[in-house]
Computed example of a mutant assay.
Amino acid sequence: MDLDDQMRRYFGTDQLATVPPEAIAAGIEHMRVDLGLERDRARRFALWTLLYMLDAAPALDAVFEEEADRDAARNLMDLSARMMPDAD
């Protein structure tokens, strides 16, 4: 799953800054529905990752049955936190 493809699928563009708030909310809702229906582990992880980047990801335990997937998600969360500038 390519990130730009996912952005175009759910928001109609790969430029999220141009998307109105209502369309962002609708795209997030669409992603959450797809996440609930998706059975492929890699696709579920990709959808969860995009939702995480949009601060809309469901809890790990609700999404990932496999401990390895939860660990990978935690690693992603840790890495992204390290890349964010300190708020101090």
Rank of each mutant, 00 (worst) to 15 (best):
M1L: 11
D2I: 01
L3H: 03
L3R: 07
D4Y: 03
D4F: 05
D4R: 01
D5R: 11
Q6G: 15
M7W: 02
R8E: 15
R8N: 08
F11C: 07
F11M: 03
F11L: 12
G12K: 01
T13H: 11
T13A: 14
T13P: 14
Q15K: 12
A17E: 14
A17F: 08
T18F: 08
T18C: 01
V19E: 05
V19I: 03
P20Q: 13
P20Y: 11
P21N: 10
P21R: 12
P21W: 00
E22Q: 12
E22A: 14
A23N: 01
A23G: 05
I24V: 15
A26D: 07
G27H: 03
G27T: 12
I28M: 12
I28H: 00
I28D: 00
E29F: 11
H30C: 07
H30F: 02
M31E: 09
M31L: 00
D34T: 13
G36H: 08
G36F: 02
G36W: 08
G36D: 08
E38V: 13
R39Q: 04
R41H: 02
R41L: 10
A42D: 15
A42M: 01
R43I: 08
R43Y: 04
R44E: 00
F45V: 07
A46I: 02
A46P: 00
A46T: 07
L47T: 06
D55V: 06
A57R: 02
A59G: 05
A59S: 03
A59H: 05
L60E: 12
D61A: 12
V63S: 02
E65Y: 10
E66Q: 14
E67N: 08
E67L: 15
E67I: 09
D69E: 11
R70C: 09
D71L: 15
A72T: 06
A72Y: 03
A73N: 06
R74W: 09
N75C: 11
L76W: 11
L79Y: 00
R82E: 10
M83V: 10
M83R: 11
M84Q: 13
M84S: 01
M84W: 06
A87T: 06
A87G: 07
D88A: 15
D88K: 11
D88Y: 04
